[in-house]
Structure formats: C-alpha cells, structure tokens
Computed example of a mutant assay.
Amino acid sequence: MTLKAGFLGYGLMGKAHANALARLPMFFPDAPEVERSVLIGRTVEALEEAADTLGFNRIESDWEAALDDIDILYNLGPTRIHVDPTVAALNRDIHVLCEKPLAPQTAGAEKMAEAARKSDAIAGVGYNYRYVPALQLAKRMLDAGEFGDVRRIRGQYLQGWQADPDDEWVWRNDVERSGSGALGDVGAHTIDLARWLIGGIDRVCGRLDTFVTERPVAGGDETRPVTTDDEYSAIATFENGATGVFEGSRVATTREGGNELELYGSRGGFRFDMERLNELEVYTRDDDGFERVLVTADDHPYMDAWWPTGHIIGWEHTFVHEHYEFLSAIEEGRSYSPDFETGVAVHRVVNAIQQSNEDGSWILV
C-alpha cells in the first residue's frame, strides 16, 4: 500500500523532509512507499513553485480540506500552527510527524499528546539528531555498559545567525509564535539527546539572556521587539544521579553548527561534534586516550545502506533514517519514539529552565 503524505510547510524543514522521502526508496528499499500527495500553505503562487521543486502532486491552501485525502500529516510549519492541524489529524486517525517544539506552550503540547493517546495513529516528534549514526553508535555502546555508570553529560548547540544586531527580525524572535528562543529551538535538541541517552531529568537551574531587544524588519525602516531569549545555560541533575551542563545560543559570534555532546562514565565516555558528523571520539578503560572512530563501516548504525567504508554522509541523511523508522512503525503497527510524550517531557524541562531564570533557584521538573 502506498501512503499519501501531506506537508504543512515548505521552508527548511519542508525541503529536508521532502528530500528524505525522495531518497528513501533508493537506499532503504524495504521502507513503505510514500506519495508526496499535497503541499499545504497560505500563498498559492509560492505553493505552486515549492510543490514543483519538492515533488508534490497538488497544493492546498486549506489544511482542513487537505486532511480528506492523506494518510500522514507532516507538520513542518512555524510552532504556532502545530496544535490545531495536528490534533485534527489525530482525531481522524491520520499519522503525524511534527517538528519540534510541539507547541509554543506546554498546554498545547499536552493537548497534542492527549489526542495521540486517543488516536489509533502513530505520532512522532522530529528530533532528527537521534538518527546520526555516530550518536546511534554511542547509544549502543552506552547501553552495552562500555562506559560504565554515567556521571556527567555536557551538551551545547551554539549558532551565530543572529549575532549581528542588524540581523533581521524573524518569527522565532516572537514568544507568542515560538514559545521560546534558543532554549526551545536548539536547546530542545540537546535536552532530548540527553534524556534519550541517560533518562529523565529531575531538576534544573538555568539562565536566559536577550542581548538584542529589537531587530529590523525586512524591507522597511521599522523594528520589532525581540521577546525570546538569545541564549540559555543550565545545570541539570538526572534521576539516576548524573549531572548535565547545557548551553545554546543563536548569537555566538563565528559559530554555525556547534552541536556538541560529551558523556563521561565510570569506565569511559565519548565526544561528538555535528560539524564532524561522521566521527565519534570514544574512550574506555582499555584505551590510552580518546580514539577517533569514523562511523562509516557496514556494521555501524544505518551505514550498510549507504556508501563503502570511509565515504561520509551528511545532515540531510538523518531525516532519511528518521523517515525509515517512522514509516516502518506505521507499516508494522508498533510504537514509535520519540513520540508526543517525549515532546511534552522536553517541554517540561524547558519550562523549568524558564522558571528557574525567573526565580533564581533550582526547579523540580
């Protein structure tokens, strides 16, 4: 059976997910077949151009009407439009893959999770970094006990795309549309990876900063206020006793894709940097120091589907792996993770960091 997919949104995430669906049958031939059926948006002219580029059969400016003819909704638009279309789709047992964060506020995310619990459909949230082969290898080694008991994890995601005060205002600068700034955008990825690797977070202490309080609007002389954080930092304790140190920024001058993770346990640990996505630095007690592993061998996660050993893959391939797992869960009628409960859990950690910033104290999650 061919599944009909509808995309709500055609920006960066729309391109990433459409590219993944196009590549999927070529490299993962056992994946379910998916038809890029309908592209959903507001502006007909822009939709027509995007549909032609991304390979969709038709366009639709009314998301409710689009639900009549799809099996899967990919909700890839701005955070503020996640809740209603997603809930409506799940109420009709239409599968949903929604980009993170699930909603501007936790109440909206909880509404989505409640709809997912009542639905017969599969609901997943787009934490694509789980599908980096190097991090999948780190998870495999961690679960096998090769690093011993986890003591500490450090995660950072530093970007500089708004480091210049003259960089233009975007919807991500509006708390009503996005819910938070760097914390909910890049910080959510770090928090999810940490919870996936180690487990639940017990309490946090955090700080938020907004360095540029107004930004120019594109195509005019006016400015708009920035109501989200430019960067965050936080300390966390996990339910298993481990410590976490997290930071994220969109104003880190000279940084572009500084998504880094370090984990240390009683027997060893690992280091990962997205700017060297195919590498994992690993240390165990049997080693003299960190060993660089090029994660391209056939026995590494997902890599038997790609190129010969030593030939690297990129960021866009994480979405191919994500689609493979999500669509396979649909075909096999099994659960999928990260699901909406995961999305809500990350929301609660984000909320606790925001509350800590306001109160100046440790907050229980």
Score class of each variant (00 low, 15 high):
residue 114 E to Y: 09
residue 114 E to N: 14
residue 115 A to V: 08
residue 117 R to A: 13
residue 118 K to G: 07
residue 119 S to H: 07
residue 119 S to W: 06
residue 120 D to Y: 02
residue 120 D to T: 06
residue 122 I to A: 09
residue 122 I to F: 06
residue 123 A to M: 09
residue 123 A to W: 02
residue 125 V to P: 04
residue 125 V to R: 07
residue 125 V to W: 07
residue 126 G to D: 04
residue 127 Y to I: 09
residue 127 Y to T: 05
residue 130 R to W: 10
residue 131 Y to G: 10
residue 132 V to Y: 10
residue 133 P to A: 03
residue 135 L to K: 09
residue 136 Q to F: 01
residue 138 A to Q: 00
residue 138 A to S: 03
residue 139 K to L: 14
residue 140 R to F: 11
residue 141 M to L: 14
residue 143 D to N: 10
residue 143 D to C: 01
residue 145 G to V: 08
residue 146 E to R: 12
residue 147 F to A: 00
residue 147 F to R: 03
residue 149 D to H: 09
residue 150 V to N: 00
residue 150 V to R: 01
residue 151 R to V: 03
residue 151 R to M: 12
residue 152 R to K: 13
residue 153 I to K: 03
residue 153 I to R: 00
residue 156 Q to A: 08
residue 158 L to E: 11
residue 159 Q to Y: 02
residue 160 G to N: 05
residue 164 D to N: 15
residue 165 P to Q: 10
residue 168 E to P: 09
residue 169 W to P: 07
residue 170 V to L: 15
residue 170 V to F: 14
residue 170 V to A: 14
residue 172 R to A: 13
residue 173 N to G: 08
residue 174 D to Q: 04
residue 175 V to T: 12
residue 175 V to A: 13
residue 175 V to R: 12
residue 177 R to G: 10
residue 177 R to M: 14
residue 179 G to S: 08
residue 179 G to K: 04
residue 180 S to W: 10
residue 182 A to R: 02
residue 183 L to T: 02
residue 184 G to Y: 02
residue 184 G to E: 02
residue 184 G to V: 06
residue 184 G to D: 04
residue 185 D to V: 12
residue 186 V to E: 09
residue 187 G to M: 03
residue 190 T to N: 14
residue 192 D to P: 03
residue 192 D to F: 07
residue 192 D to R: 01
residue 193 L to W: 00
residue 194 A to C: 13
residue 195 R to P: 05
residue 196 W to M: 04
residue 197 L to Y: 06
residue 197 L to A: 12
residue 203 R to T: 04
residue 204 V to E: 01
residue 204 V to Y: 00
residue 206 G to A: 07
residue 210 T to A: 09
residue 212 V to D: 03
residue 212 V to K: 00
residue 213 T to G: 01
residue 213 T to S: 12
residue 215 R to W: 05
residue 216 P to W: 04
residue 216 P to L: 04
residue 218 A to C: 08
residue 220 G to C: 11
residue 222 E to W: 05
residue 222 E to M: 13
residue 223 T to N: 08
residue 224 R to L: 15
residue 226 V to C: 11
residue 226 V to Q: 02
residue 228 T to P: 10
residue 228 T to Q: 07
residue 228 T to L: 08
residue 229 D to Y: 06
residue 229 D to L: 05
residue 229 D to C: 10
residue 229 D to V: 06
residue 232 Y to F: 15
residue 237 T to K: 07
residue 238 F to P: 02
residue 238 F to A: 01
residue 239 E to R: 13
residue 239 E to A: 15
residue 243 T to P: 03
residue 243 T to H: 11
residue 247 E to G: 13
residue 250 R to T: 05
residue 252 A to W: 12
residue 252 A to C: 15
residue 253 T to K: 15
